[in-house]
Amino acid sequence: MKVLLVDDSNSIAMVVGQMLQDLGHEVVRAKDGKDAIAKVNENSDIGVVLLDWNMPEMDGLEFLEYNQKNKILSCPIIMMTTENKPEKIVKALQNGASEYIMKPFTQDILVSKIDTVVKG
């Protein structure tokens, strides 16, 4: 499956990207929300998005809002962030995220969260 990994941190992108590749996924990386929009335009077959919250240019929440208005994606979006306050989680869910991964997390958690949103 093609996974769009949106995170401004190179080290996170590397670690998580490697995990995803080990799981047999193809990884497309975007470094913020703006870049993610561009990557969505270039890749029509994205199966799931992993979305950081805090990023320059366009942050994760802004990307969710943009997608709700413009419907550029039909696949599930999973937030993946250090933001772990319930208000934040609720906000992300209200704006179209289907699941939420709090950093730090384990590979098992990543696998099962992707599984649940992809299976629906």
Binding site: P86, I89, L93, M102, P104, F105, S112
Partner: peptide
């Protein structure tokens, strides 16, 4: 812990 609540628990039920 943060890890406990991410094992098997849908985030909608967590909040």
């Amino acid at each position: 812990s943060n890890l406990d609540v991410q094992r098997g628990l849908p985030v909608q039920l967590l909040v």
